[in-house]
Design a protein around this nucleic acid. Structure first.
Ligand SMILES: [Mn+2]
Ligand SMILES: [Mn+2]
Ligand SMILES: [Zn+2]
Ligand SMILES: [Zn+2]
Lengths: 138, 138
DNA sequence: GCAATAAATGCACTTCTGTTGCATCAAAAT
DNA sequence: ATTTTGATGCAACAGAAGTGCATTTATTGC
């Protein structure tokens, strides 16, 4: 608990009760979560607050946004040592079409791509879809 | 015009007036288009019809859907010879953060990725974001 | 501690995109 | 010509994202 407070403070985010709860929630899940997931997890919560909390977390490099191809944006805690604010950590993401969960594969970086002349890449998003390890082992 | 009719018929899609217009519109643009783009291009058009037309086109392998990370789904005509219905053509897409246009880079296939044990990939989406050739030459 | 100030939260409401149900219209088959 | 099928148009809905403003809570300077 004190741990989380310190983490937030280190990132210049005031550790309010709600923020600590959200951080804790995300830390316990190993999968990426949507705004609605958090909303459902905390009955007594306001969507806007959660929304703005995630936005703040993202701006301060505490979480990163994931576009997994479903229509809902997901979020996941950044790895310790990740410097999202400064430069993107271009790892890939996996979305399971069976359990609908999305995970960060932080060890798997997006390979460098040679683009046609004139194109300058600044960011990249690679999402693989299929069956995740949990689902395939059943 | 007759060309388009034949193309549609070959894909088992009845060449109605609206469908021919939509196909023509997409063929003239070299960039991926959103439902709203088509809607705006044809004053006298109904969103639902356009929506269902794109859906039909996709099912019949005439267009493919593109998730470029903006909140709106884009569509682009499939290359002649592309067999989307049977197996995905996993080329990459480029989204320009300056002009906001998305293009297919059909020559650039998504590289094979080695996944951790248990993960089975069936589909992949790779979008590069940055400055496109048109914008970088200015 | 207390007033002034700034930040965080909660509520209401809006916009945008995608989607469905159902009635109507047009085309194809018998 | 009648039946049947497919396409279109209107209306309404759902989900996610985002904004404005009032209120509450925390922080700062005195
Ligand atoms: Mn991630
Ligand atoms: Mn494409
Ligand atoms: Zn799974
Ligand atoms: Zn551009």
């Amino acid at each position: 608990m004190k741990e989380i407070e310190k983490t937030l403070e280190n990132k210049n985010v005031r550790p309010t009760a709600m923020r600590i709860l959200i951080y804790k929630y995300m830390a316990e899940k190993e999968i990426a979560v949507a705004l609605t997931d958090i909303e459902n997890a905390f009955a007594k919560s306001d969507r806007t607050t959660l929304y703005r909390t995630l936005k703040t977390f993202e701006e301060k490099g505490i979480v990163h946004q994931i576009d997994d191809g479903t229509s809902t944006t997901k979020y996941a805690l950044c790895e310790p040592g990740c410097n999202c604010e400064i430069e993107q950590d271009l790892h890939l993401h996996f979305h399971c079409s069976n359990c609908n969960e999305t995970v960060c594969l932080t060890e798997h970086k997006i390979p460098h791509i040679n683009l046609p002349d004139g194109y300058v890449a600044e960011d990249a998003n690679l999402v693989l879809k299929g069956i995740c390890d949990k689902c395939s082992r059943q």
